[in-house]
Design a protein around this nucleic acid. Sequence first.
DNA 1: GTGTACATGTAATCCGTTACATGATTCC
DNA 2: GGAATCATGTAACGGATTACATGTACAC
Lengths: 211, 211
Amino acid sequence: MPSRQIPSEQEPPRPLPPTAWAVLGLLSFPGERTGYELKKWADASLRFFYWSPAISQIYAELRRLETLGYATSRRSGPEEPRTKRRYAITEAGRAALAAWADSTQDVGPPVLKHPLVLRIWLGHLAAPERLRALVEEHLARTEAELRQVRAALARAEDHAEWAHPRIALRWSELRELAELELARAMLADLDRLAPPRGAIPVSHDGWPGPG
Amino acid sequence: MPSRQIPSEQEPPRPLPPTAWAVLGLLSFPGERTGYELKKWADASLRFFYWSPAISQIYAELRRLETLGYATSRRSGPEEPRTKRRYAITEAGRAALAAWADSTQDVGPPVLKHPLVLRIWLGHLAAPERLRALVEEHLARTEAELRQVRAALARAEDHAEWAHPRIALRWSELRELAELELARAMLADLDRLAPPRGAIPVSHDGWPGPG
DNA sequence: GTGTACATGTAATCCGTTACATGATTCC
DNA sequence: GGAATCATGTAACGGATTACATGTACAC
């Protein structure tokens, strides 16, 4: 039976995964960068609203982008103490990225994988105190993330080129704040279900509503 | 050179991926279910705080869980119009799931992949009107999701066994509401950057703050 | 009788991670 | 001199998706 791979025919170019565009996006801002720098940058900002690829994948994407002609690289010579490979976006790359950015490709619903809520969802299998502790941990981690977002926001220069990244970071800041509120509301729900030791259960009218 | 796979030695059992636990979790609630039903249920509730695996993967996970002795299946016979395979959790499965639920395994930070914010982040490459339209679409989609969460919440019976799933859904409801607020705030930020046609730009003192 | 939902699977393939390997530079 | 960071990769592998295949039941 003929498989889907027909070697004699030209394969239509498969669309690039969002990760490739994200990496190319990192390159679209002023300056040349190494894969290593890109990873640090992704860790410090991209990950708050998208996600930070593994370093090995960043290198792989950079190689792919170069193969496609969307990026060029040059090995730094003796002018720098360390030999490294710096990448820059090409005109073709900028055009392709702009076309993607202006398309509706890959603009799906946000994907959320929230391990904590998964645990709560299975809360009937765990000790109430354990659940509470997990939420507390999550609160602490979220507060730490909020500080990191604010640090990134403080670093973001107040120039026109960085206006959109700042909006994304601003969104992330509000998102972390919302995450804190959500966790606190969940904690209250858990307390209502199984009041913590020493607490006096109060009467209530079902769910607490925002009114 | 010897690879990491040494056939002569017993491999320590690799830990199951979160997806396996999620599927086992679906089985941990009262009732026997088919893979098909599990998929529908995941689409209707799990996906709002975790994610809904592809149907083919659900079947694969069910087979794995059965291999591990965490689930049993039986083919329905002539008593049902359609032959299907119904799965149920075993005692071993319940014990393993409870151990996982009570552990701190896989309780990492929430993973968020927000394609819309990625687009905004690259907003310098797109037309302002396009960005606005994307946010509007997102608002509409989020409102639809909110309705779905509320429908799931309405379906969730008011019994003790379902208390924790209800908390997770309640969290999801608040999350969708927060998502709406976040999108509206982002829209305002975009307007400030490039006022829509016909709008009169007003003076402002930087970012709008929650106070 | 035709389309939709029900129901279960296989195959191919890619995405992405972790582990491993290697070496230079900088800081203490 | 030793640790941490900088810097770039390769290899193996699992996770997950999409496309494909197949057939039943039911509603209109």
